[in-house]
């Protein structure tokens, strides 16, 4: 007897990654394609909701930070408390948002300077926008820090793309380190996932060079 494939987390599986149902009849393929489209649309909705709910969970740190007592003013020595951890996460989130915003602005600058790279960089820009949106929603109580909007993008297309890859690699390392430093589990999860997204993006851009 065969075990269920992957256990309980497989049960709601929907295969939005299907590129072609090999080994089935045309009718089956058609039916399959229809249901895949439906489940894919449903997944996108769920995904957005889940992402935002995860961001809210991570954003608890920002909410708490607004009502923390300022013990430093007493001048007494003290041991680290859970609120210190919360404050650490807020700082970490602010840094992460700044980094992601810079990368977003750099993507826009590359497209501006090299319109012929738009097809390659626009999907990166789109994912980057999502990173910023989700991380910002985890930090609604704080104003996003201003990010510089002017960059020097190399004149050569290959150099511009190479520099973009370097920046994405740096963002991957930063988000990975942020993930390890995060006190909040949901925030760590978001940051690890953002790091994974950067890793994939850098791989793809290297192939497209």
């Amino acid at each position: 007897m065969q075990a269920r494939w992957y256990g309980r987390w497989m049960q709601a599986a929907a295969f939005d990654d299907d590129k072609g149902p090999g080994g089935v009849s045309d009718t089956e393929a058609e039916q399959s394609a229809t249901s895949l489209t439906k489940s894919s649309a449903r997944e996108r909705l769920l995904t957005r909701r889940r992402l935002m709910s995860l961001a809210s969970a991570a954003g608890v740190v920002a909410g708490l930070s607004g009502c923390m007592p300022s013990r430093e003013r007493t001048g007494r020595r003290r041991t680290p408390t859970p609120t210190d951890a919360v404050r650490g996460d807020v700082g970490l989130l602010v840094t992460a948002i700044t980094g992601e915003e810079l990368l977003l602005a750099y993507c826009a600058a590359v497209i501006d300077r090299h319109p012929e790279l738009a097809a390659v960089v626009r999907p990166v820009h789109q994912r980057q926008r999502e990173h910023v949106d989700v991380l910002r929603s985890a930090l609604r109580r704080l104003d996003p820090p201003p990010a510089p909007r002017r960059f020097v993008v190399p004149a050569g297309r290959r150099s511009a793309q190479a520099r973009l890859v370097r920046r994405i690699d740096a963002a991957r390392r930063d988000r990975f380190d942020d993930c390890l430093a995060a006190e909040s589990g949901p925030l760590a999860r978001l940051l690890a996932s953002a790091a994974a997204s950067h890793a994939v993006t850098a791989d793809l851009l290297r192939v497209q060079r």
């Binding site: 995904t47 999502e130 793809l204």
Partner: peptide, 10 residues
Amino acid sequence: AQAFPGVTDS
């Protein structure tokens, strides 16, 4: 490529 791999559809 996804913006949040491992988080979507989980």
